[in-house]
Design a protein around this nucleic acid. Structure first.
Length: 638
RNA sequence: GCCGCCGUAGCUCAGGGGUAGAGCGCGCCCUUGGUAAGGGCGAGGCCGAAGGUUCAAUUCCUUCCGGCGGCACCA
C-alpha cells in the first residue's frame, strides 16, 4: 500500500507502487496532460519514476516554480541534439540550466557564430515537434565509457570516469540522442514550450580551469510560454538602456579611451558627482571619529616586500624603475597607513586609531576583466584602517556596520547581504593567526546582530573578511563594502603600541571600505537609478528655462538666486521652443526644470516640472528656492 | 590572459576592390513658440594602426591596438 498526500491535504491510496504519471491520471486527465514532472517529498523527479513508499506528492506543471528549471535543462539537451545533428563534428560536454536560461558547452574545431543560431533554433523546434519520449536508463559504468569513447565523445567519457565509484551512471535518451545526465527531465521533447531563444556564444574553459582547453559555450533563454520570453527580452533591453557606459556618455559624465586603458576621464558633471559623494563620505567619516590622511603613490619595492605584496600581489602591480630603485605604484593603502601609525610611540590610550584615505590605487587587472567603471585599473577607495586592540574588534565592527548601513540607505540601497570569507589558498600568516582572526570576525558580526552567509576560501591574503553586497533596483548584486581583520600586516611591518602594562603590543588592523571604489560605486548608482539620480546627487539639479527672449532678464535673476543658495543650476535661454528644451533637459535627466515666462515674471513665480512627471506646479520664487534648497541638500545626519 | 564577434562623421548605424552615405547632434538663418523633437541651409571622415596581396585596399589577408560578450581573474 502506498499513501500519497496531495497538496490539498487529501490522501490517495494505491495498492502497489505507482508512477507519477499514473497518479496524475488518477487525479484527472487535465492534470495528466499538463504534467511535466512530479515532486515527491520536495524532490522533483521524472513523471515516469516510480513511487514505492508513502510520500508527500504533487504534480509539476508549467506554472510551477520548479518547471522552469526542467524546461531550461531540457532546452539545453534539445540544443545539444540539434547542434550534433547539424554539426556532426561536435562533441558535447555539459549543459545545465542557469538563471533565466541554459547553456551548453561544445567542443568543435571550427567556431560557431551567432549566424548559426537561426538554423539551430529551427532544428530545436523540429525536435520539439518530433515529440521524442525522454527515457531514463541506468548503465554500467564501463559500458557507458566505452559507448561515449566509441562515439568520439572523450569529454563525456572523462566525466563518467571521474564520477564517484558508488554513483549510478544515469543516461537520458531522446530518440537516438543519448546524454549522460542526472535529470530529472520532461517526459518528452514535445513538452518543451516553444519559448526559447539562443542568446550568445562565448568561450568557456573545460571544467572552469584556465589551464584546460577552451570550449564553445552557447547560451540561451527558455520560458514556460512566449509571453514570459517576450517579457524577458524586453527586460534585457531595459537593462541595456541603463548601462552606465551608455548613460555616462549620454549624460556627459565621463569617458574612457585607449590612451589610458582602465582609467577614467571624468568630465565636469561626472566629477561633480564624484566630489559630492566624496564630500558626503568625508563628513560621515569625520563624524564617526576617523582622521583623514594622504600617502604616496610611488613606493619603493622594499616596503611591498616587507608587507607581503611583492610575494602575493606582484602580478597586479605597476612597477617603475628609477635610477637604481624599483618602485611600485600603490595597489593598496594599508602599508602606507602602517607607516603613519609607526611614527612616534603609540599608547593604548590612543586606540582605536581610525585612519582614512581617499586612496588612489592602481592595479593591473587582466585586460579581459575591464568593464566600464565597474572594473578599472585606476581607482580611488574610501579606504580606512582601524588600528585597535583585540578587545576592540567587536565594538569597531558594530560601529562600522551601522555606519555602512546608514550610508547605503542614504544612497537608496536597503537590501544588504553580508558574506563571510575565510582563508584563501594563497595567503600570508600562520594558520594559528588565521584561526584567531576568523574567530574574532565571526564573533564580531554575530554580536553586532547581522546574519551572514559563508564564502569559503575567498578572504584577502592577509586576513578574513566580511563582504557587504547590495542589491540594486533591478535585482543585481554588487559587492561594495568590506571589513577585514588583519593580524598579519602589523606583524610584518612591525607596528606596535605600549599597553597599560608598559610593554609593547601588536595592534590589530581592520581594513574597511564602504563604497569600495568611487568609480565602481558611481557605476552602480547610475545603473540603479537608470541615470535619474536623486536630486542631492545630480550634477545639475535645476535647469532654468525661458519661454521667449523676453523672459531672459527674469531668468537670469532666478538663476542667480538658485545658485546663490547652493543649488546647482544651469540656464537655457536659447531661442528654442519650450517643448524642445523640456525634452532635452529631460533626456539629460535633470531632476527639476524651472520654467519662466511672462506669467511667472509678472507674479515673481516659477513653474516647476520634475523629471518623470509631466505635471507642473507654479509657486512663488522664494518658496521654490526654500523648498528646492531643502530637497537638494546632502542627507548628512547632524 | 583565453575564445568569439566588432572597429566607417560627436552618437547610432548603412555600404563595399576604383579614396564614402543616412538619421540624430553641431553651425548659420528664419521662426518668439506655455511643458518630451518647428523649418531651411551648411560644415563635418587618415573607414582603429602597421605590413601584405593587387594596376588600385576603407573593402581581401596577417599582425598589433582597442571595444563588446562570456570564461578565467577580482589578493
Amino acid at each position: 500500500m502506498v499513501n500519497l498526500r496531495l497538496p490539498d491535504g487529501s490522501v490517495k491510496k494505491f495498492p502497489k507502487p505507482v508512477t507519477g504519471m499514473e497518479v496524475a491520471e488518477e487525479i484527472g486527465p487535465g492534470l495528466a496532460k499538463a504534467a511535466l514532472a512530479i515532486r515527491v517529498n520536495g524532490e522533483v523527479a521524472d513523471l515516469k519514476s516510480q513511487i514505492n513508499a508513502d510520500s508527500e506528492f504533487s504534480v509539476v506543471t508549467a506554472s510551477d516554480g520548479d518547471a522552469l528549471e526542467l524546461i531550461r535543462h531540457d532546452a539545453a539537451h534539445v540544443l545539444a541534439q540539434s547542434v550534433q545533428e547539424l554539426f556532426p563534428d561536435t562533441q558535447v560536454t555539459i549543459g545545465p540550466a542557469i538563471e533565466n536560461g541554459f547553456y551548453y558547452d561544445f567542443a568543435r574545431e571550427a567556431p560557431f557564430s551567432s549566424d548559426d543560431f537561426s538554423n539551430i533554433e529551427k532544428r530545436m523546434e523540429e525536435i520539439v515537434d518530433r515529440d521524442l519520449p525522454i527515457e531514463r536508463e541506468i548503465w554500467d559504468r564501463n559500458k557507458a565509457i566505452e559507448y561515449f569513447k566509441s562515439k568520439g565523445e572523450s569529454y563525456k567519457a572523462e566525466l563518467i570516469q571521474d564520477l564517484p565509484q558508488n554513483e549510478e551512471i544515469i543516461i537520458y535518451k531522446q530518440g537516438d540522442w543519448i546524454d549522460l545526465c542526472r535529470g530529472p527531465h520532461l517526459p518528452s521533447t514535445g513538452k518543451l514550450p516553444l519559448a526559447f531563444k539562443l542568446t550568445k556564444i562565448a568561450g568557456a574553459y573545460w571544467r572552469g580551469d584556465s589551464t584546460k582547453e577552451m570550449l564553445q559555450r552557447m547560451y540561451g533563454t527558455a520560458w514556460a510560454n512566449k509571453k514570459q520570453l517576450a517579457n524577458y527580452l524586453t527586460m534585457l533591453e531595459e537593462a541595456e538602456k541603463r548601462d552606465h557606459r551608455r548613460l555616462g556618455r549620454e549624460m556627459d559624465l565621463f569617458h574612457l579611451q585607449e590612451h589610458a586603458v582602465g582609467s577614467v576621464f571624468w568630465h565636469p558633471k561626472g566629477w561633480t558627482l564624484y566630489r559630492i559623494i566624496m564630500d558626503y563620505i568625508r563628513v560621515k567619516l569625520e563624524l564617526a571619529g576617523y582622521q583623514e590622511v594622504n600617502t604616496p603613490q610611488l613606493v619603493d619595492s622594499s616596503l611591498w616586500k616587507d608587507s607581503g605584496h611583492w610575494d602575493k600581489f606582484r602580478e597586479q602591480m605597476f612597477i617603475s624603475e628609477v635610477e637604481d630603485k624599483v618602485l611600485a605604484i600603490k595597489p593598496m593603502n594599508c602599508p602606507c597607513h602602517v607607516q603613519i601609525f609607526r611614527q612616534g610611540i603609540k599608547s593604548y590610550k590612543e586606540l582605536p586609531i581610525r585612519m582614512a584615505e581617499f586612496g588612489s590605487c592602481h592595479r593591473n587587472e587582466p585586460s579581459g576583466a575591464l568593464h566600464g567603471l565597474m572594473r578599472v585599473r585606476a581607482f580611488t577607495q574610501d579606504d580606512a584602517h582601524i588600528f585597535c586592540t583585540e578587545d576592540q574588534i567587536v565594538s569597531e565592527t558594530e560601529k562600522f556596520c551601522s555606519l555602512l548601513m546608514e550610508i547605503y540607505k542614504a544612497f537608496g540601497f536597503e537590501n544588504i547581504q553580508i558574506k563571510f570569507s575565510d582563508r584563501p589558498e594563497n595567503r600570508a600568516g600562520e594558520n594559528k593567526v588565521w584561526d584567531q582572526a576568523e574567530k574574532a570576525l565571526i564573533e564580531a558580526v554575530e554580536v553586532a546582530g547581522y546574519s551572514y552567509e559563508l564564502n569559503p576560501g575567498e578572504g584577502a591574503f592577509y586576513g578574513p573578511k566580511l563582504e557587504f553586497v547590495l542589491r540594486d533596483a533591478i535585482g543585481r548584486d554588487w559587492q561594495c563594502g568590506t571589513l577585514q581583520v588583519d593580524f598579519v600586516l602589523p606583524e610584518r611591518l612591525d607596528a606596535n603600541y605600549v599597553g597599560a602594562d608598559g610593554v609593547k603590543h601588536r595592534p590589530v588592523m581592520l581594513h574597511r571600505a564602504i563604497l569600495g571604489s568611487f568609480e565602481r560605486f558611481i557605476g552602480i548608482l547610475i545603473e540603479n537609478y537608470a541615470g535619474r539620480l536623486p536630486i542631492w546627487l545630480s550634477p545639475v539639479q535645476v535647469a532654468v528655462v525661458s519661454i521667449t527672449d523676453a523672459n531672459i532678464n527674469y531668468g537670469e535673476k532666478v538663476l542667480e538666486e538658485f545658485n546663490s543658495r547652493g543649488i546647482r543650476t544651469i540656464s537655457d535661454f536659447r531661442n528654442e521652443k519650450i517643448n524642445y528644451k523640456i525634452r532635452e533637459h529631460s533626456t539629460q535627466k535633470i531632476p527639476v526644470i524651472v520654467v519662466v515666462g511672462d506669467k511667472e515674471e509678472k507674479e515673481s513665480s516659477v513653474s516647476i516640472r520634475r523629471l518623470g512627471d509631466s505635471r507642473q506646479e507654479t509657486v512663488a520664487l522664494t518658496d521654490a528656492i526654500d523648498k528646492l534648497e531643502e530637497q537638494a541638500r546632502v542627507p548628512v545626519a547632524w
